[in-house]
Amino acid sequence: MLKVSHIDTFYDNVQALFDVSIEVGDEEIVAVIGSNGAGKSTLMNSIVGAVEVRHGTREFNGQNISKLKAHDCARKGIVQVPEGREIFSKMTVRENLEMGSYCIKRNAKEMNDKLGQMYYLFPKLKERAKQKAGTLSGGEQQMVAIARGLMADPKLLMCDEPSLGLAPVIVDDMFDIFQRVNKEMHIPILLVEQNAFMALDISNRCYVLENGHMIAEGDSKDLARQDTIRKAYLGG
């Protein structure tokens, strides 16, 4: 589905990613873990071409997307739920969701069906539909961000730090939802997380980033058993 090979990413003259490769298969949940500043968000932005990638190639469904800009990638179906949610806080929840499908032509009935699907997945959002998104709690705002991403009918959903600033109970709910999206809607998910424990728990495969280098990759269950990973990311 998504195949990124040997990319080097730069912020002006500072190199942030070194020869990074990553792959996401159909119907897979793939996690990228790493500490602050490891380059996780940079990797996300590199995939959609929102930052300067100097070398390497990016392929999506067999198509070369190396030259595409961020908005073109979104139209191809790579939908990113950004770090820190970035919702439209002065708009209502419903308006936020409708904005998500801006680039998809839908008549009123199709729109309602799609919204219904989101409300089924996130019942809380139905209650809050007419409320300004900025007045919601952190967890609810994160739900808005994910639902807005799903409104765009993604072929690949990328989530940047969905657990950021959320209570542990809410984080559990959030990860349940990712599994449901993956199983019920058959959407592959690329998850970038600091919460390595959760990320390893729900993902099929996992990559470990450190200082811009990919230092490990493999089956999530195997990685969770490795001593070095346990020490560095799972607290011993």
């Binding site: 959609v48 929102a50 800009k69 961020a70 908005h71 073109d72 979104a74 139209r75 939908v79 990113q80 950004p82 970035e86 919702i87 439209f88 806080s89 002065k90 708009m91 308006e95 409708e98 904005m99 998500g100 801006y102 680039c103 807005r148 765009a152």
Partner: peptide, 24 residues
Amino acid sequence: SKWGRLFRSLRENSDAVEMMGVDI
């Protein structure tokens, strides 16, 4: 219209708009 809402969303968060596939 859809356009008006798009303009307003640009004021709030232009990065998020770009991630929805809009050429800002």
